[in-house]
Design a protein around this nucleic acid. Sequence first.
DNA 1: TTGTACGCGTTATCAA
DNA 2: TTGATAACGCGTACAA
Lengths: 332, 332
Amino acid sequence: MDVTIYEVARRAGVSIATVSRTLRGTGPVAPKTREKVLKAVEELRFTPSRLGVSLAEGRHAANGIVFPNLAGPYYTEVLLGYEEVASELGRSVVILSTKGRTRVHDLVKDLAGRVDGLMVFGHTAPDDLVAELVRMGMPLVFVSREPLAGADTLRSENTESARALARHLLEHGYQRFAFLGAPIATGDDVDERWQGVRSVLGSAIEAVPTEHYTVECGYQAARTLLRASGRPQAIVCSDDEVALGALLAAEELGLAVPDELAVTGWDDIMAARHARPALTTIRQPMRELGARAARALDELITGARDTPRHLVLTTELVLRASCGHHPQEEPR
Amino acid sequence: MDVTIYEVARRAGVSIATVSRTLRGTGPVAPKTREKVLKAVEELRFTPSRLGVSLAEGRHAANGIVFPNLAGPYYTEVLLGYEEVASELGRSVVILSTKGRTRVHDLVKDLAGRVDGLMVFGHTAPDDLVAELVRMGMPLVFVSREPLAGADTLRSENTESARALARHLLEHGYQRFAFLGAPIATGDDVDERWQGVRSVLGSAIEAVPTEHYTVECGYQAARTLLRASGRPQAIVCSDDEVALGALLAAEELGLAVPDELAVTGWDDIMAARHARPALTTIRQPMRELGARAARALDELITGARDTPRHLVLTTELVLRASCGHHPQEEPR
DNA sequence: TTGTACGCGTTATCAA
DNA sequence: TTGATAACGCGTACAA
């Protein structure tokens, strides 16, 4: 990034306007002039400065994304879908991880200044900043969060899926349940799942918190839970990773799954299918969440749409071995 | 991003220079003036435009990262360490995934125009572009790649670890081996691992390619391999994910690990410890690779260092159950 | 078909 | 202590 448009212009014996027109294909350029310009560009290896272009165009051609952290497949998969579509639309992706960060407010604000639009997971951005960004008209898409005025929200269906899962477990005959990975924030995905199962199971299910939604935390919490007296017959987990941890704990304690203990997850990450026993879970279209977020953002940025949209993607209950025996299970 | 420094200056009754000085703390400002400026900034909710600042400062305050894809823990973990340190150093991170992308050259070039320095995995950037970037003096750090003139390279030790692993397997008494996940590019991590084990095992080990380094591909390839006649007694895998796939294949075929088949991985991702049987592997400091890359880049960008450095981080052989029986194994 | 000149939003130098 | 003003690199009306 050293040679500027002026040097190219001088070398080609034209003005910078002509160089710009030639390179962008905007406005007429005589064939001979065009040749000269392209030759100079070639010789000087000229590449327009991104900063100059952005400043002049008034846009960054970049999207931001804010997530708690990247450990585990969920955020990774969403990010994957997001980056793919953003790239397709000619936009770079600037990332920001908030976990363990101090001054998240400033970090998100800085990020907002670098992009044309922002995708935010759940409540990883401070509410007052969000309000300010909405006021400023910054295109915003929230994923895994309750609807919010002035911004798109995008999520997978939770409540009804949770109810279906709960009813299925009741059909297996279980009576004492635990919800492992109790919700941390109100209104996010996990909270909806918890509300859903509780609306069906009532006081038969108890909420058991974990520090994070990870295999390790699930393992620790499940071990404690399963060692105590009056252990549940079925553990509904906030997500697959916590559930994988619960499976480990059960195995370590010599509890047969599903005969002595049922376990369910959420998300249908790849490991869920490969787990022993394979994990009953609710499949949510992670990659599509990211892809849709990128498209929605593009609509808002280009002005193709100006009213917020709140979308809920459908999920699918995936019955496998970990929740009990079924006549026929999904083949590997 | 609407109100400019000019509006603040007018409101405060000062020049833009004074506003800038006040906000950046560069140069003297009278206390009373300072008050007026800050008040105007507050009332107008002024935030300096990133583009303006970058253009004037001549730097982006951003780092780029190029990786093949984000599926699986390896790239994710490295990215995690990278983003964390970059953020600590006041730099944003712009990502680029190349898998399945056409025109990678243009994408990487565009990325290079948005950042002050670039971290690149293996051979995910075209060689000619790399050469051009080096020539232009763009700070570059390569991870998982053979040393390269004009840029930092950073990797974990492979060859000697691979030899140690091979010798250990020989001690178990195995005689027929397979290397699952044969190297795709020469000079990258997997290639070094392959060269290492082969230098010890010679013709006793056969290279078995997989399409990608994933659980699924490992599973498919292992199933084919294990069904054929003359199956190996030990499978050395390119990485943990391929190894997890091999474990699945073995289980499906009713082969007891390690009694009828030994399996080893590489990386020591979290799932390696949780697998059944737990996976013997080589631990590589993934997060630290990312963290070091970010620091190295910072040194090159700030000019604290100007000669390339080629660093090799040490690894550790982690013996678990999957490669055979040991007197005492690492406790869970 | 081409060129001039202004705008984009800062920072920093230099003179006052 | 403060203010003009020149960069920074480009896009693009507008005039020629």
